[in-house]
Write a protein that binds this DNA or RNA. Structure first.
Length: 818
DNA sequence: GACCTGCTGCGGTATG
């Protein structure tokens, strides 16, 4: 295998034999690779990016070491493969071993992650495999071992797999920092070759920059020159007039989805919410009992073992359908899946594409995805998604900047292994994308915070973590080192209780708050089982099987993904099209009666218009506004508007919002007219108005909790031992106050505020949308009754104050007739 | 009888 033609041939043959398209390593890319360049490979999921890159690098190695090929040699660690998912690590390892066998290469492939057994770890300590697949957290744990540089002396290549998944998060920052150290260790040798593997995102160039840290003019992006064909079809109700105007469940359309499931080999049904998967699972079985045993459900609060069982069953093709949340979004491909149903809004174009890509894995096959709306208006999203996909309006992943919490954790990691020299690490860190704008002053603050505890905590010894000897920093406390190892990582979880059968066997986790409301004997549902709650013991909820007909579905406090900016803007455009009358989209056609009603009662906004509805009901005076900017932006915008209106005249509001718009409700007439409505959206005095109206301190306080945990200021207790969430929250709050009062320059405090502005208020997006609205036409209507647009928002705001029974009554009364 | 919202991911000790 001396020449590249032979190498290329091996790759092509292998990929073809394994049903994957050999498009990634084109001649040109291969050339880049063997010249030792770094870069980024981009292609849709399931198209063999991983394998092409892997084969390419192995064959390149063979070319460079022709004599060692096929010999059992101890080469040491050659390649580090970073993956965000443990499950993915296993998949990749399996495929790699297969490839190596075929090439007759006696290389070892190892996995290093949380579930790597101790014996394997010790084995690896003695001798590293040639290829190590690792998570970002485990990489940092390696960097926290004594003599860690020895492990990496032979390393030539690092691959960041699923880089788009890590990029926008603090886990991505961990990768950046890890890479900076590995590059530092490689100084004096051939520079590390670093490759990213990424699905399509809006900012691929930036993704490469983040991976590289310092610009590298020779680095390349290898793009797949193919368009994955995706076909979207909506599941339409027979009579749109009878389909709900609000809601998020979608079970009314299940009878229409069932034939699709029955006619497919294997179907994935994606929902947005964990409780929703439980509800759908039960509902499917109720309507189609013959599916018992052939369907399963999968979400993040179901015990790992059960999930793995479901995943294996998917691989083997023995399941007819799996109801799941985005826990099945990542990496691992399930070939038997031929049909995907998305229930409700996917909230973003990228996520939708990814889910669609779960079907039709075979090269050239069309991925088909069904969209099942949970309320009428959501059908517009289907039409918008089609347009967005056609135009490739995939969202960007914004890299995290200046995450001082992660930096502090990292420095401590280096401190507990061999210690570090300030100047050397400063050099490396400012070479990362995340910290390239860090000032010398900030660096000095960080070091002094770690050695003294900073201005507020200097009198507490436990915060003097590192000892300083000239420019050398090291942690000499075994106790602190131990604690630190337990806290490496950036994922801060909420306190959950495990659920276990009395007879043995874990089922999953639920929130403390949910179980606190249960009485022994109550029935609830988890992982598809109906369970009877027996008691709590050792922070575990013990249950037995129940035959109860009615069971409470647990709810989990999860994230609230807002509608993405991309999807929002296409959505606004789609409304314009819907009213143009010459649309061919079935989703828009079927909605025509609804649009007509909206137009008669009020107005359907065009692309360059903002609709404001003033409605009086027995509840009071409502102002509905529809920017289609996602709920986070709406929340802040609503608060801002309420404040600006109240400056005109004393008035109080209650606020409600969803992804499409928001509501201000008052008991007095709301003073907004055509003449003065524009100035409510003005950028003038925006910062001061925001500071007065939005409680930024409270938002920052909430953000600070994670920051304090990541920076290692709060000890979360030993594994297995429970520490109530309350304690965590209160100690974080305490620290927040202490910093605010005694150390206002504290960088972690500052970070909490900037995270609140960036992630919670989405300040940049808020500004953009205000500017857009300010330059748009604003149409104020005064409908005589609630409109299809405002209905979902109104229902949401009622839900908080009413029981579901009363709510159903109220909704019946509220709903206007066509 | 139902117009029930709120995702995902990782990691770890020590003694007999």
């Amino acid at each position: 295998m001396k020449n590249k033609a032979r190498g290329w041939q091996v790759i092509t043959e292998w990929l073809a034999a394994h049903d994957r398209q050999p498009f990634v390593f084109q001649e040109e890319a291969w050339e880049h690779y063997i010249q030792g360049r770094s870069g980024l490979v981009n292609a849709p999921t399931g198209y063999g990016k991983t394998f092409s890159l892997f084969l390419g690098s192995v064959i390149d190695w063979i070319n460079q070491h022709p004599k060692d090929y096929k010999q059992k040699t101890k080469n040491g660690l050659q390649m580090l493969w970073i993956t965000p998912l443990r499950a993915l690590a296993k998949d990749i390892a399996r495929a790699m071993i297969e490839v190596l066998e075929e090439l007759d290469m006696p290389w070892q492939v190892g996995i290093r992650s949380g579930d790597t057994p101790v014996s394997t770890r010790q084995q690896q300590k003695k001798q590293m495999p040639e290829i190590l697949i690792i998570t970002p957290e485990s990489l940092h744990l390696l960097l926290g071992q004594k003599d860690y540089p020895k492990v990496f002396t032979t390393l030539t290549t690092v691959v960041a797999d699923e880089w788009h998944e890590l990029l926008g998060s603090k886990r991505g920052v961990m990768v950046e920092l890890g890479l900076s150290r590995l590059r530092g260790l490689a100084k004096g040798r051939a520079p590390l070759r670093v490759w990213g593997i990424s699905a399509t995102i809006g900012n691929l160039d930036e993704a490469l920059d983040v991976l590289l840290g310092k610009p590298d003019p020779t680095a390349v992006i290898v793009r797949a020159r193919l368009d994955k064909q995706i076909e979207l079809q909506s599941i339409l109700p027979d009579e749109i007039e009878k389909y709900p105007w609000a809601g998020h469940l979608g079970t009314k359309l299940l009878p229409k989805a069932l034939p699709i499931i029955l006619n497919s080999k294997t179907t994935l049904i994606f929902t947005n919410v964990r409780s929703q998967t439980e509800i759908w699972y039960h509902e499917i079985l109720r309507q189609c009992p013959e599916l018992a045993g052939a369907i399963a459900l999968h979400h993040g609060s179901i015990d790992m073992e059960l999930r793995v069982w479901v995943e294996d069953a998917l691989h083997e093709g023995i399941l007819k359908a799996v109801v799941c949340t985005s826990s099945l979004d990542l990496g691992v491909d399930f070939r038997p899946v031929d049909t995907v149903i998305q229930v409700g809004s996917p909230k973003g174009v990228a996520r939708f594409l990814q889910r669609a890509g779960r079907s039709g894995h075979q090269p050239g096959a069309v991925s088909k995805i069904w969209f099942l709306p949970t309320h009428s208006l959501e059908l517009v999203e289907a039409a918008a998604l089609k347009a967005a996909m056609k135009e490739q309006l995939v969202e960007s992943r914004m890299p995290v900047l200046l995450a001082f919490d992660v930096l502090i954790q990292y420095l401590m990691t280096l401190g507990i292994s061999d210690g570090f020299h300030g100047a050397e690490i400063w050099e490396e860190i400012t070479g990362t994308f995340c910290f390239r704008d860090m000032t010398e002053e900030e660096w000095q603050w960080t070091l002094s915070f770690l050695t003294t505890g900073g201005e507020a905590l200097y009198s507490y010894d436990e915060f003097k973590k590192l000892e300083r000897e000239d420019d050398f920093y090291i942690c000499r406390s075994r106790q602190l080192a131990l604690r630190h190892r337990l806290h490496i990582g950036t994922i801060v979880s909420d306190a959950m209780l495990k659920v276990k059968f009395i007879s043995g066997g874990f089922i999953g986790v639920i929130e403390e708050g949910f179980i606190a409301r249960l009485q022994p004997g109550d029935a609830f549902s988890l992982a598809g089982h109906t369970l009877e709650f027996v008691m709590i013991k050792d922070m575990t909820a013990l249950v037995r099987k129940s035959k109860a007909k009615r069971a409470i579905i647990p709810s989990w406090m999860g994230g609230r993904l807002p509608l993405s900016a991309n999807l929002g803007s296409v959505l606004r455009r789609t409304f314009s099209e819907a009213m143009s009358g010459n649309t061919t989209e079935p989703e828009l056609k079927i909605l025509q009666p609804l649009f007509n009603l909206q137009e008669n009662l009020s107005h359907v906004p065009k692309d360059d218009e903002l609709l404001v509805e003033k409605i009086n009901t027995q509840d009071g005076f409502h102002l509905f506004v529809y920017p289609f900017e996602g709920r986070l932006v709406h929340e802040v915008m609503a608060t801002l508007l309420a404040y600006r209106i109240s400056k005109r005249q004393p008035i109080t509001f209650s606020i409600a919002m969803n992804d499409y718009g928001f509501e201000l409700l008052s008991d007095q007439e709301i003073p907004v007219t055509d003449e003065d409505v524009h100035e409510l959206f003005s950028l003038e005095n925006l910062s001061t108005d925001l500071q007065t109206s939005v409680n930024a301190t409270e938002m920052a306080r909430r953000k600070f909790r994670d920051i304090a945990v990541i920076a290692g200021l709060i000890f979360q207790g030993y594994p297995g031992k429970h520490k109530a969430n309350r304690h965590l929250q209160s100690s974080a709050s305490l620290l927040f106050n202490v910093f605010r009062d005694y150390d206002p320059q504290n960088l972690l405090l500052r970070q909490a505020f900037s995270e609140a502005f960036f992630y919670q208020m989405e300040e940049a997006r808020l500004r953009e949308s205000l500017e857009r609205i300010y330059n748009n036409k604003i149409i104020i209507t005064e409908p005589a009754q609630l409109t299809p647009f405002c209905f979902p928002i109104k229902v949401d705001s009622l839900r908080e104050s009413l029981t579901s029974e009363k709510l159903a009554d109220r909704i019946k009364k509220m709903r206007p007739q066509f």
